[in-house]
């Protein structure tokens, strides 16, 4: 059992992705076109399942101190990304709808993982989340070496 702690970030993601239900991620945000600050609404059950999965992913290798976040693209503008569910920390981009960075765009387009090295030691590891039809419906971010939890 001691060996479980040596899993690297890719292996943490590999295990985590097995438990993230892409169909539920597709449906968790009930109004994907909302723009009003107070207009956001979730499918409670799907959110709970996805969020608790993120919390477990963060604990697969406690030594890594990863934070897990799920992202989607805005259906009306695929240049914009939405941090749909945060695990223990917000992403560096906080809670805002934000322009898609190149690395995340690459994941949505190619289905291959990518890494965004941020200033300092922090890096965002991006992995595609697929639904049961094998479509990419979101991105799992594992935020590494963020240090301080991004919170509000």
């Amino acid at each position: 059992m001691k060996g479980y702690r040596v899993l690297d970030i890719d292996n943490v993601a590999r295990i985590g992705l097995m438990f993230i239900d892409g169909d539920k991620l597709e449906e968790v945000l009930l109004d994907k076109l909302s723009t009003d600050y107070d207009d956001i609404n979730y499918h409670h059950e799907y959110f709970m399942e996805l969020k608790t999965t993120l919390m477990k992913i963060e604990k697969i290798n406690p030594d890594l101190s990863l934070f897990a976040i799920l992202w989607q693209l805005r259906p009306d503008n695929d240049n914009l990304s939405v941090p749909v569910i945060a695990g223990g920390s917000l992403p560096v981009e906080r809670w805002f709808v934000t322009p898609v960075n190149e690395e995340m765009r690459k994941v949505f387009r190619t289905g291959k993982p990518a890494v965004f090295h941020r200033s300092g030691d922090a890096s965002s590891y991006y992995y595609p989340v697929r639904n049961s039809a094998a479509e990419i419906v979101g991105v799992l971010e594992l935020l590494d070496k963020q240090g301080i939890r991004c919170d509000i």
Binding site: Y37, I40, W95
Partner: peptide, 21 residues
């Protein structure tokens, strides 16, 4: 608050009535 992406309820200033749960 839901906007901060951590939880699915607006415990503060509940707007959607099903959040009253």
């Amino acid at each position: 608050k839901k906007i901060y992406r951590f939880f699915p309820y607006d415990g503060d200033e509940t707007r959607f009535l099903d959040d009253s749960e």
